[in-house]
Design a protein around this nucleic acid. Structure first.
Lengths: 354, 354
DNA sequence: CTGAAAGCGCTTACAG
DNA sequence: CTGAAAGCGCTTACAG
């Protein structure tokens, strides 16, 4: 390791020396605080740009006695699907990296099937007066109301996993649903010949959620239309998650339409469909979403052929980091960050890091 | 933002208070320096573990006048393939993040077709006495000789992109070649019916490099064998990169074997093959490697169907970061980090972040 | 074997 | 509008 040169003045001190002022005044200018004459302000700013001064963030965080607090609001884990385990891991990863920098993360959770819990938790969150907020806006109206308040209070927030474009937030980090459906179309086009049919299956209880699934369906249909592939594409909705509901909905289709070659499940519930296909020994290809334990099991057994994933861990990790960059580093952050659309099979899932 | 509580002593000071020694002594114990009596050493260590003391790395780096220097040795860009642009970007990204922490990166480059340049640059690198080294061991024997010296001098090093397992290094970060071939087999198995043939194409000049390509070939063949698919699989080697060599090698195969349904190129030279297939209007599917500009163009045109990628930017980024973790944070790092095996198509490449 | 003191590059009251 | 001084949690000579 090499010692630093017997240091000439640098940083804030050197600026102060050149400007013939104290470092406190330099600090004021750097942070655009009031109470500096225009003249010295200009002089100092000139020196700053001459020197291409970059503040030492280590020293900044160390000297500052402030703790920055970021709050997160996402669905709680357990119950119907384990999807939200991954974003939680991403938050925790960011947390452990940022603790070093004196940043604290406070986590709040709501029940995906109960919008009241969303309202309640969002109020609780606000009472903690965080400096920034990460939020999964599962309930659109409620989320809009909440973020309206955030804006009033000048608390920056980022959306993950699904966007509410009208709301001007710091940024959105998540998938482009239409494009992921389009990719599914691309993939499936390799898996069917011209006289085979495709069955799109939306499995959801929540009406709002269905809205998201339809975007993927539109993407898939657009791919086939754009490429003049005239395969029959059917869609069914399954409104309950139990095996019987799945069975009755699917068996109707598969028995009536013997040409169905691929089933495309538009969300992470693909394991339920896999379960049915396996039990009834249906020999169709199956494509669905998300790296969940139950899905991976069926992938491994060869019942699910492809899973489309969008790095849920990273979504949340990046969301927190964007707040950090905005709050601590004053960096400008991209206002929309679309996640990669990953294709997972039995042979690469073990290497899928996230 | 919330102010810190009117701070009770913490960190090194609190330890010193409890142990009834000065902070200098505590510092000595923390850094396992000599010159502390066993008794006080034990006492201090006990307090440290009682308190679950975590050093403040900001303060550490700030107070320390040392600059840590990491050297990198990778192929230079330009000439035959643009592959190494990506790892260079990864290095530069790590560089910009680590500058904050007072870490400097010195980059060295060699010519992939000239092992002498590797030797020369590696010597030059050593004369700079870096604290850690990142290296792409393209020339196996030369790399072993070099890293032997590193070990003698106790300079930790990490391999990226290809491994030399016998050499005990800090870690390897890169692809598992066999597994990526196996995945290619998995993917291609969906693209061919039972009477179609597969043509594996190795395009390379260097004998050592061919060794790597064969691992992928073995993976693909193993997939078909394991799954009792009896498609004919042929292999050809193309030893020159010019269009004529490619043409003569491929046209022979494709004209003699009309059943070839998929061509699998085992490295990033797939664009050359695409160029040929396009000119001669061959209607076969094409699968290859790596997110290079020229490959993406053919992907976009529909000549290349699938590219397998292994995040070259991230490989190098992680490599540098591993050295940082080892050198600065004294974290233990995984000694082997295998990259994800990503499947890229025309419809998701735009979202492939790296 | 141990401690007192200066300093890393900043921020933060406080005083004027 | 401006400056002097203390302090963030460490490391580093230097002295004993």
């Amino acid at each position: 390791m090499k010692k630093k040169l017997p240091t000439e003045l640098s940083g804030i001190k050197e600026i102060a020396r050149r400007a013939n002022v104290s470092i406190a005044t330099v600090d004021r200018v750097i942070h655009k605080r009031t109470g500096v004459s225009l003249k010295t302000r200009d002089k100092i700013n000139k020196i700053i740009s001459d020197l291409d001064y970059q503040p030492n963030l280590l020293a900044r965080r160390l000297a500052s006695r402030k703790t920055i607090r970021i709050a997160t609001l996402i669905p709680k884990i357990g119950g119907e699907s384990s999807f939200w385990e991954a974003p939680l891991r991403g938050i925790e990863q960011a947390e452990s990296e940022l603790r070093q920098m004196g940043i604290i993360i406070e986590k709040f959770f709501f029940d995906q099937e109960d919008s009241e819990t969303f309202i309640k938790q969002s109020r609780l969150l606000l009472r903690h007066e965080p400096d920034g907020i990460l939020i999964a806006p599962s309930f659109v109206d409620e989320a809009i109301e909440f973020t309206t308040t955030c804006k009033e209070r000048h608390i920056p927030f980022v959306y993950i996993n699904s966007d509410i474009p009208e709301q001007k937030s710091l940024c959105y980090i998540g998938p482009d649903l239409y494009r992921s459906g389009y990719l599914a179309g691309n993939l499936i086009s390799y898996l069917v010949n011209d006289n085979q049919e495709i069955l799109i299956t939306n499995v959801t209880k929540e009406l709002e959620d269905r809205h998201h699934l339809v975007r993927k369906e539109e993407g898939l249909r657009a791919y086939f239309a754009d490429h003049k592939r005239n395969n029959v594409i059917r869609t069914i909705d399954v409104l309950q998650f139990d095996a019987d509901s799945i069975e009755s909905a699917l068996s109707l289709q598969l028995n009536e339409n013997k040409n169905i070659g691929v089933v495309f499940v538009t969300n992470s519930r693909v394991a339920s469909v896999a379960n049915y296909l396996k039990s009834f020994n249906h020999d169709v290809l199956l494509v669905g979403y998300d790296f969940l334990k139950e899905n991976i099991e069926y992938l491994n057994e060869g019942v699910i052929d492809f899973l489309i994933c969008q790095k849920p861990v990273e979504q949340a990790y990046r969301g927190v980091m964007s707040l950090y960059q905005h709050l601590v580093l004053s960096t400008t952050v991209e206002d929309i960050y679309l996640m990669p659309i990953d294709i997972i099979t039995k042979e690469n899932y073990a290497y899928y890091r996230n």
